[in-house]
Computed example of a mutant assay.
Amino acid sequence: MRAVTVRPSAGKSLEVCEVPDPVPGPGELLVDGLGVGVCGTDKEIAAGDYGRAPGGEDRLIIGHESLGRVRQAPPASGFGAGDLVVGVVRRPDPEPCGACVRGEFDMCRNGRYTERGIKERHGYASQSWTVESDYAVRLDPSLERVGVLLEPTTVVAKAWEQVERIGARSWFAPERVLVTGAGPIGLLAALLGHQRGLDVHVLDRVPSGPKPALVAGLGATYHSGPVDEVASALRPDVVIEATGVGDVVLGAMRGTASYGIVCLIGVSPGARRLPVEAGTLNNALVRGNVAVVGSVNANLRHYRAGADALRRADPDWLERMITRRVPLRNAAEAFTAREDDIKVVIDLDG
């Protein structure tokens, strides 16, 4: 079969090549790959900045935003041939920490987890793959065209869970959310805010194109002005920060309402230094009872929450998020950004 592979830590090594067909082990599903999403992490791996192949191998099959159809399932697994499924990304290490042993492997304390398509496990960017039935999530059949969006949806499902758990420290009745960044993560965060009945605002730097249209499609409000001005005017109860851009992060933290919650899910690209009035920021956070929390990855609970959120979403809106589909034979094209890209998907049967 064919798969998208790289030689980790070696730039310009991405290649669609022949690899052995997978053989399911006990308790594993055999899945025909339908599609795989490409995100910033995949591009970093392809550039040689990150990634680790399985032990004893020099190439890694990439891809962690999966979608496939079950070809073969073991008896009593709860799955059957034809089921639409997504594979979970992370696995706890062989000697799991306290969080991992309780199924909270997204909160791993020792860092020895593995991840499909990223760290020490082959990913899902192949024409077929296997996955343990305990780490597979069934999707509604209506999501065949857009189910590849589940993995990024799990990231924001966890973020919203973190916000709501922190809010529960006291009376919490949020009305307005500001999402910074209108890439796939930001748009999906806005979707989940919309599903919660909140007044949703999305900030991004581009003034036109598919992003404002998608935000409008949620009945939300789009902004492209400076973050300090937008946040100060809105005074949001919740901020979901999905850019990782330093001055946007700081502006979001300064602009929340009293008792606000800022959830940081964007990874910063570099070590750029920014001048910060630490005392002023500290006073704003302390006197306003503002909470700031970082959130990354997801566990099985978040996959199920994400699958439910996608099932309840407008499928046409979700499909408009996928702005480009690339056949497997031309997979390298998915790693070169185009002006109006939001989510790029590699079709694994092409």
Results as ranks from 00 to 15, higher is better:
T153D: 00
E161C: 08
Y222E: 09
L348I: 04
A298F: 10
G103Y: 04
V38W: 01
G147K: 06
G306R: 01
L67F: 05
G87C: 03
G40T: 08
A136K: 00
L34R: 14
G25I: 03
L29G: 08
D349P: 00
A136P: 02
L328N: 04
E120D: 11
V4L: 14
V89I: 13
P24E: 14
C17T: 15
E151P: 05
G251D: 10
G270W: 10
E319N: 09
I265Y: 02
I261D: 10
A76M: 06
R301T: 09
V267N: 04
K158V: 01
A242V: 06
E104H: 14
D21S: 15
I240C: 10
E120M: 14
T336C: 06
G279Y: 07
P24N: 14
R52V: 13
V38E: 01
A136G: 04
G209P: 14
D308H: 07
V155H: 01
L300D: 07
V296F: 07
L203K: 06
L348Y: 07
A337K: 14
R90Q: 14
G197C: 05
G98K: 03
V85Q: 06
T336A: 11
V326C: 07
Y135N: 05
E44F: 00
R169V: 14
P207W: 02
I346D: 00
A309V: 07
S258T: 14
K158L: 12
G51K: 03
G266I: 12
G98Y: 02
K343D: 06
L214T: 07
G48T: 14
G27V: 13
V16M: 04
V101T: 15
N282P: 00
G82K: 05
F172H: 12
L178P: 09
V248N: 03
T41W: 02
I342A: 05
V163M: 15
A313L: 01
N289S: 15
N330W: 02
M107T: 11
I118G: 01
R138T: 13
K119C: 08
G35L: 02
I185T: 12
G266W: 11
L281V: 14
V148H: 03
G87V: 01
R7V: 15
V248D: 03
A334S: 03
P75N: 06
A99K: 13
G55S: 10
R301E: 12
V163L: 11
R116Q: 11
C39L: 04
R235N: 05
E104F: 15
P8Q: 04
E115Y: 01
G98C: 04
G48L: 09
D83K: 12
I265D: 00
G87F: 09
T221I: 13
S232C: 12
G27E: 08
W129E: 03
T243Q: 10
E339L: 12
A291H: 09
R325V: 13
P141M: 13
L198W: 15
I342S: 09
D347I: 00
V238E: 03
S268Q: 15
A3D: 11
E15D: 14
G294C: 10
A81F: 05
V179Y: 06
G56Y: 01
G25V: 08
E161W: 12
G244N: 02
K158D: 06
R69N: 06
M107H: 13
D308K: 07
L84P: 06
R91Q: 05
V23A: 11
V146T: 15
I166E: 10
I185Q: 10
G246F: 02
G103E: 10
R7H: 12
V215H: 07
K211P: 04
V101F: 00
Q195T: 02
